[in-house]
Each structure stands twice: as structure tokens, then as C-alpha cells.
Amino acid sequence: MNIKAENLCFSYGSEQVLHHINFEISEPKIYGVLGRNGAGKTSLLSLIGSFREPTSGQLLIDGEPPFENARIMQNVSFLYNKDFSGETDSPSKIIEDIRWYRPNFDLEYGKELIKKFHLEGKKGVNKLSKGQQSAFNVVVGLASRTPITIFDEVYLGMDAPARDLFYKELLKEQERHPRIILLSTHLVSEMEYLFDEVLIIKEGRLLLQESYDELITRGVTVIGSKEAVDAFAAGKEVLNTEQLGDTRSVTLYGKLSEEDEKYAAELGLSIGPVSLHDLFVQLTKEEQTHA
């Protein structure tokens, strides 16, 4: 399937939260949707999940607007921090019924996951802890096997072992049944190894869409003496500078040429990789106002 946003805008009343977003997603891969709190991740994902309609511009799935479109909606799962207070059935009971509206739902796999996440009890979902409810969301999302699956910060409340299990199952599932998976998160360092491609949203705008590999090689850290680092960084885009005694470390944005690398070696600088987490922090920080 294919998701396409064209000049997509969205407002809550008079407050515009998404501004002219354009992108296309068509390969069955894992996409990390990153943004700070309030950047507009959930708004964007709920448009894809057809929970809302764009204010202007278009969002198309397989060439059609998904909103109230039964054929499309059947193929899209949107998992988010749902309010389960009215859900008195147990997880095991609920998944028995999901297959009626999710044609690809794999009940056996769903049961296996319910066991793995320790959700087998008779308790209603409304009586479960926040973390267990999130885990239940994960179970539904994974076992539904919809061609487009959206997990919107679905890990909230899940403890570290449960999150780890989620990531493991996600990778296994993606190998068995590749699909378009959108993962929104601000736990970048914990989840970055999962992403094939990254979309960063900043203040309601799409800052970039790139493959993980491309993005990660765009940044380097350069460490060395203050003078040498400054000489090397001159004319380059510096995202961040840190200093400890005489040693200076800068994060540079942009690929280094072979000449750059030679020059760095001459200056005795050490060059290291940048984590997606660091790039994300630097690219999405608010512009500093100089007094």
C-alpha cells in the first residue's frame, strides 16, 4: 500500500497544528516518526489512521482519502493510548472477536502474544494497569497484520522488559509479514535500531524524511584540541559544541569529504559517529535567542 500527503494541513479550531506536509511512503518498512512533545506527531498519525480529516490539502492511501473509507480502514490499524475504561471484556475474549473486522488477524499469534505479555487473566481490560493496557494494544497491533500499522507512543507505561519484548516481536513480525509500520516515539535512543526510515516533525512541519543510514551518516562528532576543532569546523554547520578543559567536541551536520577526513587526521582529531538520538535533539531544539 501507499501513503501520500500533499500539502497536508490540519487545525484544531483556530490553532494550526500541521503545516503543508508532503511525503510519500510506499515500501513495507519500519518508519520512525519523531518529534518533541506537541510537534504534531499524533495529529499526523490520526489523519493516516483516518480518525480525523485534513483541514486542507490531501492525505491519500492507495490514492483515496481514508476517512470513512471502509476498504482502506480495514487495512490500517491505529494503536494509541486509548481510554479503556469502558472495556470490561478480557484481552483473550476481545481478540477472539477481532478477526471479524481484521481479515488478516492471526488468532494463534494473538494468543501467543497474550501469554508472552502475561495478559491471560479473566480481568477486563479496564481493570488492567496502564502498562498492561499498552501491552494489549501492542498485541492487537502485531497480530492484526494490517498492511499499514501505526503505533503512536504505544509503549507508555510498559516496563523495560515488556518494551524489549515488543521490539523483538516487531522485528520478527516484520521479517515474517513485512508491512508499513509507523512508530512514533520520543524514546529515540531506545528505539533507533528499529527504524529503516525516519520522519522528523518539528513545530507542525516535516523537517526531514530519510533512510536511517543516510541520516545517521550526515552527522559526525569531532573531538580534539580547541584550536584544531575550530579550524576544522570553520565553514561547516555546527549543531552542538561542548567543552571540557582544553578538549572540544562538536557535532557537525553534513557529510565529510575525503579531504575533510585527511585534514582531520592531520590535525590529530578523532572523528566518531553521531547517534540518532543526538541528531534528533540537536535538530529539534528551539532556536536559541541571543540576549
Partner: peptide, 17 residues
């Protein structure tokens, strides 16, 4: 590649490279 990704928690692209 998948085993390495899972074990070391390193991105697929990095492992493949």
C-alpha cells in the same frame, strides 16, 4: 542480519553495511 540486530540492538542498515 536479523539475529545481529536483535542481539546487539543495532540498526538493520548498520548491520547490513
Amino acid at each position: 542480519t536479523n539475529q545481529l540486530v536483535q542481539f546487539y540492538k543495532v540498526n538493520h542498515a548498520t548491520v547490513s553495511k
